[in-house]
Amino acid sequence: MIRLREVRVERGGKPVLQGVNAGFGAGRLTVVVGPNGAGKSTLLDVAAGLLKPSAGRVELDGADISSLSLKELARRRAYLPQSPRVDWAISVERVVALGLTSRLPAFGALPAVWRPRIDSALERLDLLHLRERPATQLSGGELARVMLARATVGEPEILIVDEPTAGLDPRHALDAGRRLRALADAGCTVVVALHDLDLALRIADEAVAMKDGHVAAEGPAEDIFTDDVMAALYDVPARVRRDSDGASIRFLG
């Protein structure tokens, strides 16, 4: 369980987050939505303990997140930034193994005890046939799966993901959404910033709507994805339609 209390973040003297209160519970998938520049990525960075707020505090199961060591934090929460990339042509298997960095000895080869974890992460994300492929030669959908395998190989309590579907086609975006949903169902705290609101509607338990560095609305997804909240959030008239195919949002500009 992560809780943000009265969090304020400034960049170059200007506030990018102000008076933010939010909670992310275990076994729940929370989507963070809002227009560009609303502070979604900053909120995720703060919740991940990667950015220290200038005021307020972030708690992980009641303890101040800044009291945890970098390694301890890395063991408990995984974080995926927007459009992750791999800079050297290391193998897919190596990328996934990097997810265990905080648990590995500083020198030497990968200890045998971690092999099964890596194998099962590769299998879970259908990557077994790609394990020797250089990670720089993957398609967008494959890379997204590799990154998800990297993030989940250590079986973190908390997974924070920024825009996992950016640049993915509908099939791969749905696939990524399903996999995040499955992680939450298995008990993980999942926090996802999403621009794809239809996907958000499909997978979210809870939603946090951000606007201009504030939390505009927070609560169960069905209370946030309504005509009025969406219209106020994006300043465009909106209709949320629910039918036999699921729900979708249409903006009437």
Partner: peptide, 8 residues
Amino acid sequence: RQAESLGV
């Protein structure tokens, strides 16, 4: 960013 999140 990812390296930091991995405890580096």
